[in-house]
Write a protein that binds this DNA or RNA. Structure first.
Length: 692
DNA sequence: ACTCATCGATTTTTT
DNA sequence: ATCGATGAGT
């Protein structure tokens, strides 16, 4: 740290960026357009605080939304200032709130080892409440009720206040569930994700001595993606910054795409009002995209009414026009994208420099089919996540019960997993016995007989207790990886999965092993084309970007047209477009399969909003079957298609070297690749294959 | 307690 | 089309 000099961390900053780094005192809002170097500003600012302002690492609180963003920031910071950076609080809102809450929980009657319930746990708990209140599950879906409760917490509206504002029978049910739900959380010594913020704010607002402690601790607070903050997060910032008043928020209102999870754009728009004496800076020089891309994105976003005008510019030249392509249907769309990717790879692009974005996850399917067939190596970002996979959640639930046996949701989850003969009726008997005796479900498992449980399940319950108790004693003496192994072994999880003898079960075992073994080894595959939703694309950049499904009803999505209005969808479009550095292609299909039927959608309104002088439009009509879906003006089939036979060695543009196993009808070669041992079916006309 | 069939919904996502 | 949840049957 001592060796970090201002000239090192300031030299490659433009004047606006420099000012954002150097204005350390007082509230500061930085409106940072796409690609304007905001992460750079954030890390340099922390470096500056440490090196020149004399702040100590633990006095800095830098907040992000995702763990990934936090990890990246920590890494970049450590590169810049070295190991002392590790003592700074660089973490997510939830992690920071959680850390505060662990210390302050006793003030609210929670114990410090409270369990954190994720959204699946929350849903299960809501369901239990609904059953207990005996409400019609058709009218009151757990999902709908939970989303109301979650929104309420994000607005810092507690059960009592919610109940006082009820204006319909539905609301009344939500209010009743909300109250019961909180009671159940409390008696399980558990908090849900929303509570982490809600309760952190609550404890700081109600206990001034607690607030004072944390306010003094954080001399400098920095917030990334400020446009995504909700009211609870905003209030947390207000409290934490009240003493030193050094809040630095970076965000781009044009990239606010999370209103559905209570993000409130007013936090950005009202910043100067909320934080007296605040200054605002704008970063509008873009270091990522060509003018064609930037002007197109600027022109689209200018159609939003609720917006502060801002105009991104760059010095990277005009570049190629943005391409708008109409295709026949989703299959032609996928084929076009795959063929274009093959061309790009031939031109020297790496697969990892190319991305395809779509509005909804379901759209990846057809694309994946075609990419697999054409041998384009890809990765899909998003979808079901590692920690949400059932087997991983089961394991985590075991660990939670071992640490906090009052955690009834986790206990119910694992009681019969793997199957050991503890069914719903057994659990229901235990639960009602527990309720009657005023004890926890875990304690009730000791009195299975008294609870009226039959003979066979009694034995199962006793066996289950033995498993948990054995793991509890293991928890005292073992390291985490060994404990996990003991849990997997004692619980019979591994044995049950092995007995299944299916590919799926093998995958689950692998997932569990992955959790125990080195986290870094997750995968380091080479040059993969990236497929993801527009929401996941935020913050990333690619040399070439394909945005598919630009049709009314798809994007903008019909649900948003009905509900939130179309401006957030337009911002999403803006986010997608501004990810592209050099090449941007926007596609729409004349028709596509939707919900089991074929629908004919108009081209997206966003396509009408593009500046014609920066755009080139292609319409692809199938001239013949063989050329169906091939890009106009370019021959998708390559000129020198290699003549191959089984046993030949080949090299693929993205997959590397492999051996031809056999040839199939329709010009398909089955190739096994050396890099990962995978077997793929490649269409010779398209796949970038050469004989070696 | 577990297996299979029918019904209904179906945007986006993090913690 | 597809997935998940619920309910009847074994």
């Amino acid at each position: 740290m001592a060796t970090t000099q201002p000239e090192t961390y300031l030299e490659d900053l433009n004047p606006a960026q420099r000012e954002a780094v150097l204005t350390t005192e007082g509230p500061l809002l930085v409106v940072a357009g796409a690609g304007s170097g905001k992460t750079r500003v954030l890390t340099r600012r922390i470096a500056h605080l440490l090196a020149a302002v004399g702040a100590k690492p633990p006095e800095i609180l830098a907040i992000t939304f995702t763990n990934k963003a936090a990890a990246e920031m920590r890494e970049r910071l450590e590169d810049l200032v070295g190991p002392p950076a590790r003592a700074a609080w660089v973490m997510t809102f939830h992690a920071a709130s959680g850390r505060i809450l662990r210390r302050e929980a006793p003030r609210l009657g929670y114990r410090t080892n409270f369990t954190i319930y994720d959204s699946a746990d929350q849903l299960r708990l809501v369901k239990r409440c609904l059953e207990e209140l005996d409400r019609d599950p058709k009218r009151f879906t757990p999902r709908g009720i939970h989303s109301q409760i979650s929104n309420a917490k994000n607005q810092l509206i507690g059960p009592a206040e919610y109940a006082s504002r009820v204006s319909s029978f539905y609301d009344q049910t939500v209010a009743d569930v909300y109250e019961l739900y909180q009671q159940k959380l409390f008696s399980s010594n558990a908090v849900d994700f929303d509570d982490m913020l809600y309760l952190a704010v609550d404890v700081l607002e109600r206990f001034p001595e607690a607030a004072e402690k944390w306010q003094s601790a954080f001399r400098y607070i920095l917030v990334d993606e400020y446009q995504d903050t909700n009211h609870a997060q905003y209030r947390l910032l207000r409290i934490l910054s009240a003493k030193h008043e050094n809040v630095f928020c970076v965000g781009d209102p044009d990239q606010s795409v999370y209103s559905f999870r209570s993000a409130d754009i007013r936090n950005v728009l009202d910043f100067e009002k909320d934080f007296p004496g605040a200054k605002t800076l704008t970063l509008d020089q873009n270091y990522r995209s060509t003018n064609a891309i930037l002007e197109s994105a600027n022109t689209v976003i200018r159609h939003n009414r609720e917006r502060k005008d801002k105009n991104l510019w760059s010095e990277l030249g005009d570049g190629e026009p943005v391409r708008v392509v109409e295709v026949e249907d989703e299959h032609a769309e996928a084929r076009y994208v795959a063929a274009e990717i093959a061309l790009l790879v031939e031109q020297g692009y790496s697969g990892s420099e190319v991305a395809v974005f779509y509005r909804t996850n379901a759209q990846s399917r057809v694309l994946e089919d075609v990419l697999v067939r054409q041998g384009v190596a890809y990765q899909v970002i998003g979808g079901p996540r590692f920690y949400e996979r059932a087997e991983v959640k089961d394991l985590v639930a075991y660990l939670q019960v071992i640490d906090n046996p009052y955690d009834a949701v986790s206990l119910v989850r694992i009681a019969n997993r793997p199957r050991r003969g503890i069914g719903d009726s057994t659990l229901a008997r235990l639960q009602s016995y527990a309720d009657g005796q005023g004890i926890s479900l875990w304690e009730a498992t000791e009195f299975a007989e008294e609870a009226g449980v039959g003979a066979a399940p009694q034995k199962a319950v006793r066996a289950f207790r033995t498993i948990i108790e054995s793991c509890m004693s293991g928890a005292l003496e073992l390291e985490v990886p060994e404990l996990i192994e003991r849990v997997l072994e004692q619980s019979g999880t591994i044995a049950a999965l092995e007995a299944e003898r299916t590919i799926e079960a093998d995958g689950r075992i692998e997932n569990l092993q992955e959790l125990v073994s080195d986290q870094d080894a997750i995968r380091g595959e080479g040059s993969l084309v990236t497929l993801m939703t527009l929401h996941n694309a935020k913050g990333l950049e690619f040399r070439a970007v394909f945005l598919i499904g630009l049709e009314e009803g798809i994007f903008p999505h019909s649900r948003s047209i009905e509900e939130h209005g179309v401006e957030e969808e337009r911002r999403l479009c803006y986010v997608g477009m501004t990810r592209a550095m050099e090449k941007l292609t926007l596609l729409h299909a004349s028709s596509r399969m939707l919900y089991g039927g074929r629908s004919y959608n108009l081209a997206s309104r966003f396509l009408d909003e593009l500046p014609e002088q920066w755009v080139e439009r292609d319409q692809l009509r199938p001239a013949s079957w063989s050329n169906y879906g091939a890009p106009k003006g370019s021959v998708a089939t390559r000129e020198n298609v290699p003549t191959l036979s089984a046993g030949d060695s080949v090299r693929h543009g993205t997959l590397g070297e492999g051996v031809v196993l056999r040839l199939e009808a329709g010009g398909v070669a089955v190739v096994r690749f050396a890099s990962d041992g995978s077997e793929r079916r490649l269409m010779l006309d398209y796949a970038p294959l050469e004989k070696i």
